[in-house]
């Protein structure tokens, strides 16, 4: 899903023509209501969509509902998708908006990321000790805890810039805002975030 160029200033436009044609054909079939095209689109992007939502929200509460919401919005909106951006970028944009809605509506922070079984999943592939892994999970939870204290709009811009590595132009497309607005949100968001991070003694 991270199709948007990272810190390169690359415009999120369609790439090689072959890929563009295949993608356009898939979109056309989906709009025509072809079940198998819709399934192909879903199968291609369900994991990246879930991963994006998971990363931005930091928990898996209702993640399946949110993934569903993203694809329902996408299938509904495909006829209006003008293909000026890649399909993956467009889906990412929907993810961002769904995540923003989620951040705004949830009243309390749910349990932080990967609290249930952090060690079991990684122990086979990581040389780190269980203790180190646990610390890493706690540190990630701390980052989310701090992000939670920042207003949703600033938080999202901050996340997209500092964690996902998108530039201002890309973020402006993803959140549907002016790049100048994005820069302002990022400036204040970073200031708040690093201040909280530097002061956090928990």
């Amino acid at each position: 899903m991270k199709q948007v160029g990272k810190r390169t200033g690359e415009h999120p436009a369609i790439g090689p023509s072959e890929e563009k044609r295949a993608e356009a054909e898939l979109i056309r079939q989906c709009i025509a209501g072809e079940r198998y095209a819709q399934e192909q689109l879903y199968r291609t992007y369900c994991r990246p969509v879930a991963a994006n939502l998971y990363r931005v929200l930091g928990d898996r509460n209702d993640l399946d509902d949110l993934v569903q919401e993203v694809f329902v919005i996408a299938f509904r909106g495909l006829p209006k998708f003008r293909q000026e951006a890649r399909l993956s970028t467009w889906l990412y944009r929907i993810c961002v908006n769904v995540a923003l809605g989620r951040i705004r509506t949830r009243t309390r922070r749910p349990p932080p990321i990967l609290k249930a079984d952090p060690v079991e999943g990684d122990v086979r592939v990581s040389p780190d000790s269980p203790q180190t892994l646990l610390e890493r999970e706690e540190n990630k939870a701390k980052v989310y805890r701090i992000l939670e204290q920042i207003s949703p709009k600033k938080r999202l811009v901050l996340y997209l810039h500092e964690i996902e590595g998108h530039d201002l132009k890309e973020i402006a497309y993803l959140v549907g805002a002016n790049p100048v607005t994005v820069r302002t949100r990022l400036f204040y968001g970073r200031k708040e975030f690093y201040k909280l991070l530097a002061e956090d003694a928990s």
Partner: peptide, 15 residues
């Protein structure tokens, strides 16, 4: 930790 988060994969869901 932010770099760790950036490489986080999707958890298994009932796809």
């Amino acid at each position: 930790s932010m770099a760790d988060i950036a490489s986080e994969q999707a958890p298994d869901l009932g796809w």
